[in-house]
């Protein structure tokens, strides 16, 4: 890829050398490397590469912060994250910052080349291992009701609906009165309801009974 300069940001020197070797072996132009965010910004003042291969786990500023800053100051520079982490939170933050791709360090050279090519062509590349977790999370979040009840809470509401008092419920469920009280309070708090009568009505209407 002629004229497409790549710059590596990682605090792990050995990794930089390995990666550089691989990239050079595949005819990529590696213009340099930086071990920290601050070192990177010094270089960026002189020259702006087309692509930054960025690690997340760095001392001082982590890759998420550095990426956000780079994108803010040099929006033209594309960023591909190469990290050990597959954390949704980081991914979300990085997407928010505007990075173009995300690879795990466990990725093989083929995937690396694919990711660089995608980005160089103006597209994005997110490792499926990472993007899957995002989708998974989004799916479960959507699946979860606004107010979730634990099995224990459901049991207690059921017994309340049967007209039992706290002590009877405690005896029935073989738990302490304190526990029943705590659960009841939790349920009222999470539903925002004032009393048990409202709670029973609400539970009935929402199919918990």
């Amino acid at each position: 890829m002629e004229g497409f300069s790549i710059f590596i940001v990682d605090d792990h020197q050995l990794f930089i050398e390995g990666l550089t070797a691989l990239l050079k072996a595949n005819n990529y132009t590696v213009t340099g490397f930086a071990n920290s965010g601050s070192a990177l910004f010094k270089v960026l003042e002189q020259q702006q590469p087309h692509l930054l291969l960025m690690d997340i786990g760095m001392k001082e500023m982590d890759g998420v912060e550095v990426s956000a800053l780079v994108k803010k100051q040099y929006p033209a520079i594309k960023i591909l994250i190469i990290s050990m982490h597959a954390k949704r939170v980081y991914l979300e933050k990085l997407i928010e910052a505007g990075v173009e791709g995300y690879l795990l360090k466990s990725a093989d050279d083929e995937e690396l080349k694919l990711a660089i090519r995608c980005i160089a062509e103006g597209s994005t590349y997110f490792s499926p291992q990472v993007s899957d977790s995002i989708f998974q999370n989004m799916v479960t979040r959507n699946r979860e009701p606004d107010v979730m009840l634990t099995p224990r809470e459901k049991g207690i509401i059921k017994l309340l609906a049967e007209g039992m008092n706290t002590k009877e419920i405690a005896d029935n469920l073989n738990i302490s009165i304190n526990t029943v009280e705590s659960h009841r309070k939790n349920v009222l708090l999470k539903t925002g309801l004032k009393n048990v009568a409202h709670l029973i009505k609400w539970a009935f209407e929402n199919g918990h009974l």
């Binding site: 792990h12 050995l14 990794f15 072996a25 786990g57 360090k105 050279d109």
Partner: peptide, 25 residues
């Protein structure tokens, strides 16, 4: 875990990339 994760992980990753750069040669 930091050592393992970042250092060892990084080392392993770099080892992998180095090896991959050798393939074909």
């Amino acid at each position: 875990s930091m050592e393992l994760h970042d250092r060892l992980g990084g080392t392993l990753a770099s080892l992998k990339f180095m090896l991959q750069s050798l393939y074909g040669k």
